[in-house]
Simulated scan of single mutants.
Amino acid sequence: MTDTLPDRSASDLVLVVDDVPDNLSVLHDALDEAGYTVLVATNGEGAIQRAVQAVPDIVLLDAMMPGMDGFEVARQLKARPETAHIPIIFMTGLTETEHVVAAYRAGGVDYVTKPIRPQEVLARMTVHMQSARQARQARNALDAFGHATMAIHADDALTAGKAVWQTPLARELMQRYFDAPVGQVPEDVLAWLRSQADGDPKPLTVTREAKQLVLSLQQRTTDDDWLVVMREVSDAAVVQALLQAFRLTMKEAEVLYWVAKGKTNRDIGDILGSSPATVKKHLEHVFEKLGVETRNAAASLAIGKVRLLA
C-alpha cells in the first residue's frame, strides 16, 4: 500500500473498506466512472491508517470484517478530531434491527445492504457529502468571525464529556485555556453546563493572564446537543488606555484593570504571576496617582474613564 496521497484537486475522495476483492472491484469501477478519486482498504487497521493519512470526503465501510470490524473502525474514526467529521456509510448484509442500531451508534450516517447496488450507493453518498460539506463550511465561517463553536451531547453533560464536534479554533482555545486533550470537555465546562439546565443561561468566563475566554450556551441543536460558542476577549487595549489616561506603569495599569473587575489582591497575583504583597505595593502607587484612598474609588474612576470596562 503506497503512502502517496492522491490528487484530489478535481474530485471528491472516497475510501472504500471491504475484505472481499469482488466488492471492492465493483465499487471502485462505479465510483471511478462517476468521477470520484478512490482509495481502498481491506481491513480495519488499513482503513484507519488510510483515513488519517488522506482524510477522505466519505467512507464506505463494510460492517463485518475479520479482526477489527467496521463498527470499531467507525468508533475510532469518530474519536479522532481529524477524521470525526467524515460521513460513514455502512455496507452490510446484516439487516436485523440490532445491527442497524449498532451502525448508527458507531457513528454511521447511513447504511446500504449487500449485494451492493452501485447507483443506490452513489445517490446516498451525494446527499451525505453535501450535508457534511455545508456543516464544515458553517463551522469554518464561525471561526472566521472569531466565534469558536463546540457541540456536546446532552447526556455527556451529566457524566464524562466529549465534544461531538469542535471547530479548529474551538480545539485550540480549549487546549490553551484548559489544557484539555483534543475532543475532551473539561470538568469545569461540564459543571457549568449542568448548572445551565434550568433558568436563564449565564456565560462562563475563564481568565488567562491579560485575556479571557467567554463561553456562552446557545440553543440545543436538532440532535439535542449543547451548542457552546467561545469568544476570546483581549484586555490589552483596555490596559493600555488606563496606562495612558492615568500615567501608570504597565504593571500598575494591569493591577487597576483587575481591581475594576472586582478581583482580590490574591486573585490578581495569580493572574499576573506576582505575590499579593507586590500587588498591594502597585496598588498603593495607583491610589497615589489617581488621588484616591480605596479600591472602590479607584475602580469607579477607572470604569468612568475607560467605558470598555463597563
Rank of each mutant, 00 (worst) to 15 (best):
G199D: 07
L190N: 03
T92V: 02
P201A: 12
E82V: 03
E96H: 08
M174W: 07
G199Y: 06
T159L: 08
S131L: 15
R75F: 04
A123K: 10
P186D: 04
S131G: 09
E98K: 10
P87L: 09
A79C: 06
L142E: 13
L169K: 07
K78G: 02
L158F: 14
A106Y: 04
D179W: 10
A157H: 13
R80M: 13
E120N: 03
G183S: 07
G107V: 00
R171E: 09
G161D: 03
R139I: 05
A160W: 06
V127M: 08
L193C: 10
Q119G: 11
G183Q: 04
P201E: 12
S195P: 09
P181R: 00
N140T: 12
R80A: 08
V127Q: 05
T97V: 14
P81N: 04
V127E: 07
K202N: 11
A79I: 00
W192L: 09
T167L: 03
D198Q: 15
D179P: 09
T167P: 06
A74Y: 00
M125I: 10
P201L: 11
E187F: 11
R176A: 11
V182G: 14
D188R: 15
I116T: 07
P81M: 05
P81L: 05
G161E: 03
A151Q: 01
A157S: 15
E82P: 06
A170S: 07
V121Y: 01
R133A: 15
Y104F: 10
